[in-house]
Amino acid sequence: MNLENQNKHTYWNPYFGGFLFGLVIIFTFYMTGRGLGASGAMKSTVVAVVDTVAPTHAENNEYYSKFISEDKSPLDTWLIFEVIGVLLGAFISGGLSGRIGWRVQHSPKITSKRRLIFALIGGILFGLGAQIARGCTSGAALSGLAVLSTGGIITMLAIFGTAYLAAYFFRKNWI
């Protein structure tokens, strides 16, 4: 692997990034009274797909039906628009620093295939967990922390605590 190509990350100072991020959260709460989120948009996407493919099934399902209404597409939610923005914003940032390109990022010790399999497993687990906890790291943990929500902070502790405990078993994938 070409080291120069691999190390294309002149990232921001994390404190600077965090500070700006905090300002964005304040702005979000000031404007809309709610926090940021990400997994909710994916849920809406799944609901929309199921609703198009099998509308009767979606209506009969207790969970999908919560998010389906007659007059509104399940995609017409705040989070979907926010996520469109996230994609745009990340694309702009990546474009400015020349980080755009199709690639699979993984530790040199493992193969791409292994990385992709673990990414899939991780995604499934995160998707499942995010539904059970009603939010992910941004929606529950970070936005929860910003308003001192008990549930959000518990979720945050659970995520990071478990991740540290589980880190040992996945160490081969990363270091």
Binding site: G33, G37, S39, R134, G135, G139, A140, S143
Partner: peptide, 9 residues
């Protein structure tokens, strides 16, 4: 309602 019921993620 102050907020939509389903907020966050």
């Amino acid at each position: 309602k102050k907020m939509p019921v389903e907020g966050g993620c």
